[in-house]
Amino acid sequence: MTWDWDYAREVLPKLLEGLLVTFEATVVGSLIAYVLGLVFAFIRRSRIPVLSQVVWLFVEFVRSTPLLVQVFFLYYVLQPELGLLWTSFLTGSIALGVHYACYTAEVYRAGIDAIPVGQWEAATALSLPRSRVWLGVILPQAVPRVLPALGNYTISMFKETPLLIAIGVVDLVGEARGVGAQSYRYVEPFTIAGLLFLLLSYPASILVRRLERRVNRQH
């Protein structure tokens, strides 16, 4: 096994293209996970008959089954069945986002539960309407507390995107496999792919830890 610097330089642009796709899938997935997770947390908390139970069941189901199965199900079953013309990238990003929304829902729930009951009571005593209590009092206090946990899920998602190769998304690892297959040299592309993951994940996790310390200091 030898290392060829020229070959490494040659494949790098292709790999960076793949990294961009990985990046985009992570961003789309995170946005879905952040928004949908909050919606799930709301619905479960609201105790609307049937709907709350349905969401609870869905969340438990998604958390108990492999992401790959969900990706396949969405791509091969649900998407054609509903006549949606989603690209594999969009399908994969949505699957990723919905999967992680079932985890962020729990994060939001814990964050909301951590707000002292006195805050709710003060809001009631001032007759603030429900929407203002949420938007003005509860969420502005709960969301900063849960940012580190949300950040950690984004990092996890970033590292899980190669799973989307299974439905034809060419991400960083997909590109590495592709260029490797053309020249039968895999050492450089896979090594570089791994290093790129490390180069991004590690500083990101340090940032999250720093954020965590700051949040803990404030509470």
Partner: peptide
């Protein structure tokens, strides 16, 4: 009706 609480319960985000 207005109320003042033992633990103040001011909104710390405002």
């Amino acid at each position: 009706i207005g109320m003042v609480f033992q633990q103040f319960n001011l909104f710390p985000n405002m």
